[in-house]
């Protein structure tokens, strides 16, 4: 079984399970990549209102920042587009060590 078929690892299956448990959720999705981005477009990170998360949008480089934004999104319901790149090229404190750039769309589920 690969990630896409294994319900324990698949972020969208986890999201549905968490939703059924009544948790409030945000879904982060890599929508665009440039250079040597660690995760391809379409990769998901699901985050609940307590900051629990599953999946990945990078190799662990920017997840912390995405989770912080996800808390805001769960709070106000407004989707956000985040961009991460090498640290000195963007306003973000965090960056991708691999030198790539990614755009991550964060939205509330429900």
């Amino acid at each position: 079984m690969d990630e896409a078929t294994d319900d324990r690892l698949d972020p969208l299956a986890v999201a549905e399970r968490w939703m059924d448990e009544g948790r409030t959720l945000a879904l982060a999705t890599v929508v665009e990549t440039w250079g040597s981005a660690p995760r391809p477009a379409g990769s998901h990170l699901v985050i609940d209102g307590d900051g629990n998360f599953h999946g990945s949008v990078s190799g662990g480089c920017v997840e912390g920042a995405v989770i912080g934004e996800a808390m805001e999104v769960i709070g106000d319901g407004e989707p956000r587009m985040l961009e991460f790149g090498v640290a000195d090229e963007t306003a973000w404190r965090v960056g991708l060590s691999c030198g790539g750039r990614i755009r991550v769309y964060v939205e509330r589920i429900g």
């Binding site: 969208l12 999201a15 549905e16 939703m19 879904l27 939205e107 509330r108 589920i109 429900g110």
Partner: peptide, 9 residues
């Protein structure tokens, strides 16, 4: 994302 669509997906 619409919860109904997550289930459908």
């Amino acid at each position: 994302m619409d919860p109904y669509l997550l289930r459908k997906l």
